[in-house]
Design a protein around this nucleic acid. Structure first.
Lengths: 110, 110
DNA sequence: TTTTATGATCGTAAAATTACGATTTATTGA
DNA sequence: TCAATAAATCGTAATTTTACGATCATAAAA
């Protein structure tokens, strides 16, 4: 007999997955690291730091922007990217919550 | 003039991205949550908890197993999954490190 | 105004993900 | 041995991701 599968995914799980997915590519981690290192926001020299073409980097930036982890302000001809503090902390918090849920178990099964 | 793009991605960035990617789907978050809630390891009743077919769940389990976040022990006819403490903590640590790197900046640009 | 530089977007190809039903493998119980 | 159950794997379709060159839009500089 099969129980009905009622459960859809919860909003929180969807959110966590969204953040995680955005972090799920080395290029995007590298971009964030550039933004973290130079406190002052940066523009397209991100492109010079990465082993990828301008258009590809732009795409990755877009994805990070879409989840809100970064934001970009137009500054004349250039665009200045930086980490969005609020979203960054929310992601940190949400993911951290998940990880913290683990309490090592003494049972032998695994 | 173009600077040569020397930089490949670092091992650490690749590792972080790997963990994040594994967490980048609501189904896998849901699976982990099941494993976290019932301290005792669980088998295929995970399938009953998720709104997905058996084969799809099995695929997600495989991905989590491949990054090492979970492990599965065969127990007779059934298979018992649980979180791999070491890898779990390593992922927590590595991702946590990245998030901690942020120090709010006072500059106005963003 | 015309050129130049920056960066987004478009079009597209290749690869990876996601999902499912069907099949296979292995083990327990009749 | 034979049927039943649990879970992995296979085959496959649809979608998404990743990457790039080319083009477009905008602003600064000439």
């Amino acid at each position: 007999m099969e129980l009905t599968k009622t459960a859809q995914f919860t909003d929180e799980d969807i959110l966590i997955a969204r953040y995680a997915k955005a972090l799920g590519h080395p290029a995007r981690i590298a971009i964030l690291r550039v933004l973290l290192e130079r406190k002052a926001c940066i523009c397209g020299d991100i492109v010079d730091e990465l082993p990828l073409s301008q258009s590809t980097v732009s795409q990755h930036l877009k994805e990070l922007k879409e989840v809100g982890l970064i934001q970009g302000d137009i500054d004349g001809k250039k665009v200045c990217y930086c980490i969005n503090e609020q979203v960054w902390k929310q992601a940190q918090e949400t993911l951290g919550e998940l990880f913290k849920r683990y309490t090592s178990c003494d049972n032998n099964c695994c």
